[in-house]
Design a protein around this nucleic acid. Sequence first.
DNA 1: GCTCCGAATAAGACGCGTCTAATTGTGAGA
DNA 2: TCTCACAATTAGACGCGTCTTATTCGGAGC
Lengths: 236, 236
Amino acid sequence: MTPGLTRRDACCAAAASTAMGKYLRVIYLLSFQGPCVTTSEVAARLGVAAPSVSAMLRRMDAAGLITAAGPAGIVLSEHAERHARDVVRRHRLIETFLVQSAGMSWDEVHEEAEALQDVVSDRLIDRIDTALGHPHRDPHGDPIPQPADGPADGYTEDWSPSLTGVPVGQSFRVDRISDEDSTALQYLAGLGVRPGVMLQVVDREPFGGPLWVEVDGQRRALGTPLTQLVHGVVNA
Amino acid sequence: MTPGLTRRDACCAAAASTAMGKYLRVIYLLSFQGPCVTTSEVAARLGVAAPSVSAMLRRMDAAGLITAAGPAGIVLSEHAERHARDVVRRHRLIETFLVQSAGMSWDEVHEEAEALQDVVSDRLIDRIDTALGHPHRDPHGDPIPQPADGPADGYTEDWSPSLTGVPVGQSFRVDRISDEDSTALQYLAGLGVRPGVMLQVVDREPFGGPLWVEVDGQRRALGTPLTQLVHGVVNA
DNA sequence: GCTCCGAATAAGACGCGTCTAATTGTGAGA
DNA sequence: TCTCACAATTAGACGCGTCTTATTCGGAGC
């Protein structure tokens, strides 16, 4: 066994490769964002060519991680979902840790966590979880799933509504910002738009024009691609 | 450019692979421990077969990282040494960080750092260095080199004498414990033998028998393989 | 001078993860 | 129904890092 060499839980060596962890996480998260997960979506998210995804899907299928990738898109097996949830957990705990303990800012940890999520040991994740006091949200406001062997938690990937459709005149508390685009994240951070912040929707220009919001007493214009990343609740 | 994707300094993409980082670090450190570094030493340290080392040496040679691996053993180029020093820096900063901020114990961080040293970004290393207040020693007492572009530091890999030859009756302050064997490290940690601790040599049995030391008021017997890992200064 | 042993390398193979180019579906629209 | 466009896969290749087996090289001892 040699504890420490076994970096993943060894129940399934297949899901242990660093590349497969990235695929699992992305497929898992995409499955909450649309009716079906397609090869090209995955390719776009991971920045690889479509045939690379096809090849990986074949390997994942051979490992029993895929149930029928037909017209319903890519569907993870129950087993694969557990692994994917665990990758998500590691990713988000690492993000939280890097912000809290290493002094990184919340808009620059995503790529770092992407690189680390598949190489940290379970023991380190455990230590981090303890040191941080078992957090439930990462710095982007994303929920942190509990370990599979633990008690059932209230974990869900459901998103609160995005800023895009909020009517003029409403106030809006940001609770979560999608972290898949790091440059957008940096821009939003620069404007003071971050999880927990309260903002007012003061105007909306027609024909897809920007949404004007007030944050920290400043008026800011946000295009639709940006407002779609910002989620929260009205009037909270 | 895309900062963040460039995980290493990009001056030399060759030295950026995770495997090569491990080879660089091990070859660099071995070069301080004997007249010449051999293929089989490297293979043993990394836990790979000798032909794997030969193959990697060929790649390193092609990348200009090796100067003549003849009878003088494997010799790193000056350029490669800078890279190797940087890997050592990352490794030791990570160890320090994991002990200080994640609550890991000093005898379990080595393997973790081995896995992380080649995937963390320079930016994270910088943040860690700052957050820890620019430490000069890691939890095993190993010196942490400064970045190559910084001012000349007093960094040296020279070891203080090992406990092995200390005469009976002397007191000895441990300043450094070799971290290459994690089980030995755990055992020593369990005995209370750690960097900074003071111990007394109370007896030595003949014919390679154990050395008896007193630490924390307890008499302990240490075999030669163990005493060779423990370094420090007499009567300090 | 020969022989034997251990260290080092060559040869050949494999798995992973990626790519490009070419092919095969699979719709929607004319 | 045919066609065009797009999504997906196949085919074929490459680089990395590892392995095992076989060979070569260099000394030390007889």
